[in-house]
Deep mutational scan, measured.
Amino acid sequence: TFTSIVTTNPDFGGFEFYVEAGQQFDDSAYEEAYGVSVPSAVVEEMNAKAAQLKDGEWLNVSHE
């Protein structure tokens, strides 16, 4: 299960995956970082959410 939350205070020191406002979700980078295949429906969902981000916001993507 993939989830996401919007934050204005990303923790770059941890093992977190963020999408910056104005960027798209990079499923290849996510797969490389976590060894998890990302279904195309999830990629579309995360890109739709990322498109709604305002300046200074980040989308924190995770999975269980």
Rank of each mutant, 00 (worst) to 15 (best):
T1L: 11
T1F: 12
F2S: 00
F2Q: 02
T3G: 07
T3V: 10
T3Q: 10
T3I: 12
S4P: 03
S4W: 15
I5D: 06
I5T: 14
I5A: 11
I5Q: 11
I5N: 10
V6D: 01
V6P: 03
V6F: 04
V6K: 03
V6R: 00
T7W: 02
T7S: 07
T7H: 03
T7E: 05
T8N: 09
T8D: 08
N9Y: 08
N9R: 10
N9K: 12
N9P: 00
N9H: 11
P10N: 02
P10A: 04
P10M: 03
P10K: 05
P10T: 02
P10G: 01
D11Q: 12
D11P: 05
D11N: 14
F12P: 06
F12V: 06
F12H: 10
F12W: 12
G13I: 08
G13L: 09
G13D: 12
G13W: 08
G13M: 11
G14I: 07
G14Q: 08
G14Y: 06
F15T: 15
F15K: 14
F15I: 12
F15Y: 13
E16Y: 15
E16T: 11
F17P: 01
F17T: 04
F17A: 02
F17K: 00
Y18T: 01
Y18G: 01
Y18M: 03
Y18N: 03
Y18W: 07
V19T: 05
V19S: 00
V19H: 01
E20D: 05
A21W: 10
G22T: 04
G22L: 05
Q23K: 13
Q23D: 08
Q23R: 09
F25H: 03
F25Y: 03
D26G: 04
D26M: 06
D27R: 15
D27T: 15
D27Q: 15
D27L: 13
S28A: 14
A29Q: 08
Y30V: 01
Y30M: 03
E31K: 13
E31V: 08
E31S: 12
E31D: 03
E31Q: 13
E32C: 12
E32S: 13
E32Y: 10
E32A: 15
E32F: 10
A33T: 12
A33Y: 12
A33R: 15
A33N: 09
A33I: 15
Y34I: 03
Y34N: 06
Y34Q: 04
G35Y: 04
G35M: 06
G35C: 10
G35D: 05
V36G: 01
V36I: 13
S37V: 11
S37P: 11
S37F: 10
S37G: 12
S37Y: 10
V38P: 06
V38F: 02
P39D: 02
P39E: 03
S40V: 13
S40Q: 14
S40K: 14
S40L: 13
S40E: 10
A41M: 10
A41W: 15
V42A: 05
V42C: 07
V42D: 04
V42N: 02
V42L: 05
V43W: 06
V43D: 02
V43R: 09
E44A: 13
E44Q: 11
E45M: 09
E45S: 08
E45Q: 09
E45F: 08
E45R: 04
E45I: 09
M46R: 00
M46P: 02
M46F: 09
M46Y: 05
M46E: 04
M46G: 01
M46N: 03
N47Y: 02
N47R: 07
A48P: 00
A48W: 12
K49W: 09
K49C: 11
K49H: 11
K49S: 09
A50M: 03
A50V: 08
A51S: 10
A51I: 06
A51E: 10
A51G: 09
A51P: 05
Q52V: 09
Q52T: 10
Q52L: 13
L53T: 00
L53Q: 01
L53A: 00
L53H: 02
L53S: 01
K54G: 07
K54F: 05
K54P: 01
D55S: 11
G56N: 07
G56H: 06
G56P: 01
G56L: 02
E57S: 03
E57V: 05
W58A: 00
W58T: 02
W58H: 03
L59N: 02
N60R: 15
V61E: 03
V61K: 00
V61D: 00
V61M: 02
V61G: 00
S62V: 10
S62F: 14
S62C: 11
H63M: 07
H63D: 02
E64F: 13
E64W: 11
